[in-house]
Simulated scan of single mutants.
Amino acid sequence: MGAAAWSPVSFREVTDDLDPRVLAAGPPPLPGPAGSDSGGTWRFRLADPGRGDADLVAGWMARPHVDLFWEQAWPAERWAAVLRRQLDGECTRPLIAARDGLDLAYLEVYRTPRDVVGRHYPARPHDLGVHIAIGPIEATGRGVGRNLVRTLAQALFDADPACLRIVADPDVRHEVARRMFARAGFRQMSEVDLGHKRAALMSCRRPDFTIPAS
């Protein structure tokens, strides 16, 4: 989504004719701190524009390796509006992921029945979706993303016992992201047209969530 089409209102969120069970599920949970399989501890906090996180996210989004597929290299004031709307709503929670005190990634955790993704598979009320952008280029290509996805998925399952599936929708052209999710235990369900991109719809299910060997 380019800057010219920007709006503080999510272009992905579904608001009409929501099942009462979807409404009852409430917003996504905040995952708790969790140790990783490579040592260290991941911590997840709400992205707060009042403490400088809009500047942090805007800086990451302007980096070429992130902008290539996110296409959201917006000014900090625009990101502040987006973060505030997400925090005020029920669909998406914007998060900053840090390992051992170092901020490394921007995350969006959302309820898939409230998102366009939920139109492309039989979404249950408590299903969750994730978007992940690793900010520092030096943190890419070293297994950090795979480790983050593994840890985040388990932390979300722990935080919402009613959640049975976690979904990711990387761009079909983004082979690195697709490989990252696959190595973290996600399996591809289909390729779908979300309007703003052609996505590889991938998921992990609580009953059979396993972490494959590296």
Results as ranks from 00 to 15, higher is better:
residue 125 P to W: 11
residue 122 P to V: 04
residue 146 R to Y: 01
residue 97 A to P: 11
residue 128 L to W: 02
residue 121 Y to P: 00
residue 120 H to V: 04
residue 102 L to V: 15
residue 135 G to A: 06
residue 96 I to V: 15
residue 77 E to G: 05
residue 70 W to P: 14
residue 138 E to P: 00
residue 77 E to W: 03
residue 92 T to V: 12
residue 91 C to K: 08
residue 112 T to H: 07
residue 126 H to Q: 00
residue 123 A to G: 06
residue 87 L to A: 15
residue 134 I to D: 12
residue 113 P to V: 06
residue 71 E to S: 14
residue 132 I to Y: 01
residue 77 E to V: 06
residue 104 L to D: 15
residue 86 Q to I: 00
residue 82 V to I: 07
residue 148 L to E: 02
residue 116 V to S: 09
residue 141 G to N: 10
residue 113 P to Q: 09
residue 113 P to F: 05
residue 80 A to S: 12
residue 94 P to L: 14
residue 132 I to W: 07
residue 90 E to P: 08
residue 73 A to K: 02
residue 141 G to I: 10
residue 130 V to A: 13
residue 76 A to E: 13
residue 84 R to L: 05
residue 140 T to S: 08
residue 112 T to M: 02
residue 79 W to A: 03
residue 98 A to W: 00
residue 145 G to M: 03
residue 127 D to T: 01
residue 98 A to Y: 00
residue 95 L to W: 14
residue 135 G to M: 05
residue 70 W to C: 10
residue 85 R to L: 02
residue 145 G to D: 03
residue 97 A to S: 08
residue 98 A to Q: 05
residue 71 E to C: 09
residue 72 Q to E: 15
residue 114 R to Q: 10
residue 133 A to N: 14
residue 82 V to T: 15
residue 93 R to N: 04
residue 75 P to H: 12
residue 96 I to Q: 01
residue 95 L to R: 09
residue 84 R to W: 12
residue 121 Y to V: 07
residue 90 E to G: 06
residue 141 G to R: 04
residue 115 D to A: 01
residue 137 I to H: 12
